[in-house]
Write a protein that binds this DNA or RNA. Structure first.
Length: 317
DNA sequence: AAGCATGGCAACCGCCGACGT
DNA sequence: AACGTCGGCGGTTGCCATGCT
């Protein structure tokens, strides 16, 4: 029963690839117009490797469309945003960054972005602010975390909203919210969203808001966090004064979301309407919030690390 | 200059879903 | 239906380069 055994691992080479091996693999794939069966490839190409090793080498290193060089700020932002939605689904995240491999993104996350979020007082796994697990990163030292809690509430609401919308948008689509998000992300709707996010977020002129009956721009702007650098110290007077207004904004944001939900569920939705709604959801989606706070705090990383060391705080991850 | 610590990254390992027999 | 492989994926490891003492 079943197929014949994959490959006899005895005598197969492991470890780093030599230039000669790379050449053999590349030449074989070029010559045959593709890799074909990975299982039979090593033998046909004259390699003493298992098919799995060949596949990994090709997809992570030798593929001609691999983008070399450091990640741009935009790419890093995108990785953080997508990780917030998709979690550790590196392949799914990589599919949104042309030329980048899942391994590369995974390494980027584990070596850079995770630390950066930790420094920001954000749990890199849940993207939620830390609570009592890490005293050094609690609200007093990081006033921004209070804002982020409010922000997170709105985000969760929007995720729930997305989930509900998914069944209206495409009833046959029964996968996760994350998958639904990717579908929108890759659609023209998502394209519009990204363009708006990149160019028009400051002017509040979303392509759809201009034509729709009710704009969510106001609430989006209102809820946008003001990230205070950690060096600003414990909660400032200004942030206290703004707290009420921010809470109200959060409330109105959620009310807006619910209003959209009610209207959409009570009407007969045509595809175009759903697309508009989907775009609006993307515009409302809290990842739309400017991630520049990360840039602004990159420089704070070393300071933060020093502070943590100085206070002998140990964060349990 | 030597030894040690740290960070970055390529590669391996093990698991899982899809699919062939 | 059961078994086994393939291909893909995420987690982890180990090597190497660099910086620090």
């Amino acid at each position: 029963m079943g197929r014949t055994p994959c490959c006899d691992k005895k005598g197969l080479k492991k470890g780093p690839w030599t230039p000669e091996e790379d050449e053999l693999l590349v030449n074989y794939i070029k010559k045959n117009g593709g890799h074909g069966s990975w299982r039979s490839l090593p033998k046909l190409a004259g390699l003493l490797r298992c098919g799995k090793s060949c596949r990994l080498r090709w997809t992570n290193y030798l593929r001609p469309d691999i983008k070399r060089g450091p990640f741009t700020v935009e790419e890093e932002k995108l990785v953080i945003q997508l990780h917030g939605i998709l979690g550790n689904r590196w392949a799914a995240i990589a599919s949104q960054l042309p030329g980048r491999t899942d391994n590369e993104i995974k390494n980027l996350w584990n070596t850079h972005l995770k630390k950066r979020l930790l420094c920001m007082g954000v749990d890199p796994q849940t993207h939620e602010p830390f609570t009592s697990h890490c005293p050094a990163l609690e609200a007093p030292a990081f006033p921004s975390t209070r804002h982020m809690t409010q922000w997170e509430s709105a985000r969760l609401e929007a995720e729930a909203r997305l989930s509900r919308e998914s069944s209206l948008f495409n009833p046959s689509f029964g996968k996760s919210d994350a998958d639904f998000f990717l579908r929108i992300w890759n659609s023209k709707v998502g394209e519009s969203f990204r363009k708006f996010n990149a160019t028009d977020k400051n002017t509040c002129q979303s392509p759809i808001s201009q034509g729709s009956s009710s704009t969510k721009c106001g609430s989006v702007s209102a809820i946008t966090m003001e990230i205070v650098p950690s060096s600003a110290g414990p909660s400032t007077t200004a942030s206290n004064q703004n707290e009420d207004a921010e809470c109200k904004s959060s409330k109105s944001y959620i009310e807006d979301l619910m209003a959209v939900s009610d209207s959409s569920s009570s009407n007969d939705l045509e595809l175009e309407d759903s697309s508009d709604t989907a775009l609006q959801l993307l515009l409302d989606f809290p990842i739309n919030n400017d991630m520049s706070f990360l840039e602004g705090n990159i420089d704070k990383y070393e300071t933060c690390t020093a502070m943590l060391a100085e206070n002998s705080y140990i964060c349990s991850l």
